[in-house]
Amino acid sequence: MKGIGKGLAYTLKNMSKKQMTYTYPDEPIPMPDRFRGIQKFYPEKCIVCNQCSNICPTDCIDLTEKKHPDPSVKRKIIDTFDINFEICILCDLCTEVCPTEAIIMTNTFELAEYSRDELFKNLEWLDENEDNTREENKA
């Protein structure tokens, strides 16, 4: 019986302690700077080097290029850029290899959608995904 008494004392002691739970959906959870959430993409920074789609372990990045609208500029620019969040594992390797930081991780982690089609994020969506961009990465 002694052990049970001790246990009860521990429980009672903890009742007066600070509350540890989050009131999550009501209050957003702040995530640390390095948190790996849904990517944000800067089309103007992209040099279409293809490294992100090559390093992706699940092959979830699809991109195509097009000619620069100004014919005097030889550089290719990005045309479409899709990430399939059905299979993206948010491993951060694409942002790690990107030489121009055209793709970065944000702190947005809420990925739930009503339809699977909505998990295909295209260039426009990824460009507008600015809500939780980290201070240091704001363009």
């Binding site: 019986m1 002694k2 052990g3 049970i4 001790k6 246990g7 004392a9 521990y10 429980t11 903890n14």
Partner: peptide
Amino acid sequence: GYHDFVTGNEIFH
């Protein structure tokens, strides 16, 4: 605290 709480508990034993 865990040791107080669980380790000596008779039921657990």
